[in-house]
């Protein structure tokens, strides 16, 4: 039997050609950003503009560190803040979600249906909308102007929890049963049997969480300059105008490099996780 059915050669060719053209358009802005970040000043303001520089220079990157080294809050501080928020937030989210997904996916107990239902409902609206009541709650808990205002809420991510739970429910229940008959406690089963099998889900949660946290401007919840993040520094530099455009491009490139690289590294695991994400009505 033919491997591919009901396909026309012309259709295949058109499809591939179309995909390639659009793919170029999709990455063009990012290529342009990389190109701009290596352009000398005079090439940034040239007519007609070019996508790639004629003369490649790294002054924008070196300027960035010199410029920020002299600023009131050193650039390394913004860097540290973003890395700290991203790594602690991501780690905590993976721990909390794995712990909570385990009983929901593996056992039956009173309240299970209700909790799962609440998490699915929570997927249907997002935190941007609830920004104001969130601010009030964070203020009430004394979290405003600390890292924790950004970090702690990500531990309770409904998206991370949903994906982890869906992925875990794929693990054969017989494995858990067998371990239980052998006398293993629920924590031992979690640690030795369940956790090693959900590495793909960890990586997926990591991607989504890194993507969200790395780009967080945190401007409302954090007011102290020394606690602000990299995207905030970027927006400040961009707003200082033309003279800093090269440097602004360099920061843009640094900002987008991290989520894209992590995705490329772990993409096959992510696809595996997303295959289990389907909703049964």
């Amino acid at each position: 039997m033919a491997k591919k059915l009901s396909r026309s050669g012309a259709g295949n060719f058109l499809g591939i050609a179309f995909l390639c053209v659009i793919a170029v358009l999709m990455v063009l802005p990012m290529v342009y950003a990389v190109g701009n970040s290596f352009k000398p000043m005079d090439e940034l303001f040239k007519f007609p503009p070019t996508i790639l520089p004629r003369r490649w220079v790294t002054t924008n990157y070196t300027d960035l560190f010199v410029l920020m080294g002299n600023s009131w809050v050193p650039f390394s501080r913004y860097f540290f803040n973003t890395i700290f928020i991203t790594s602690v937030g991501t780690f905590g989210q993976i721990v909390c979600c794995s712990l909570c997904a385990y009983p929901l996916a593996m056992y039956n107990f009173p309240g299970r249906k209700m909790i799962s239902g609440m998490i699915v409902t929570a997927l249907m609206f997002n935190g941007t909308v609830l920004w104001l009541p969130l601010f009030m709650i964070k203020a009430g808990l004394g979290m405003i102007d600390t890292y924790w205002a950004i970090i702690i809420p990500t531990f309770g991510s409904s998206m991370g929890m949903y994906l982890m739970q869906q992925f875990m429910s794929q693990i054969p229940k017989s494995l858990v049963e067998a371990a239980r008959i052998d006398g293993a406690g629920s924590f031992k089963i979690f640690w030795t049997i369940v956790l090693p099998q959900v590495k793909s889900a960890w990586l997926t949660l990591m991607i989504f969480s890194v993507q969200g946290l790395w780009n967080t401007g945190a401007s409302v919840f954090i007011q102290s300059e020394s606690l602000k993040t990299l995207p905030y520094a970027l927006s400040q530099i961009v707003s200082t105008g033309i003279a800093r455009q090269g440097v602004a491009n360099a920061i843009s490139v640094i900002m987008m490099a991290v989520p894209i690289t992590t995705f490329i590294i772990s993409q096959s695991n992510i696809i595996e996780t997303m295959a289990t994400s389907g909703m049964k009505d």
């Binding site: 909390c96 009983p103 969130l134 702690i152 531990f155 309770g156 979690f190």
Partner: peptide
């Protein structure tokens, strides 16, 4: 199943505080 609730406690505590409570507030 008492032990199982302990597994869920950290997540649920944060979920309720930062997802359910904001809606009520």
């Amino acid at each position: 199943n008492g032990g199982l609730y302990l597994f869920m406690l950290p997540y649920l505590l944060i979920f309720v505080t930062f997802t359910v409570l904001p809606v009520i507030v």
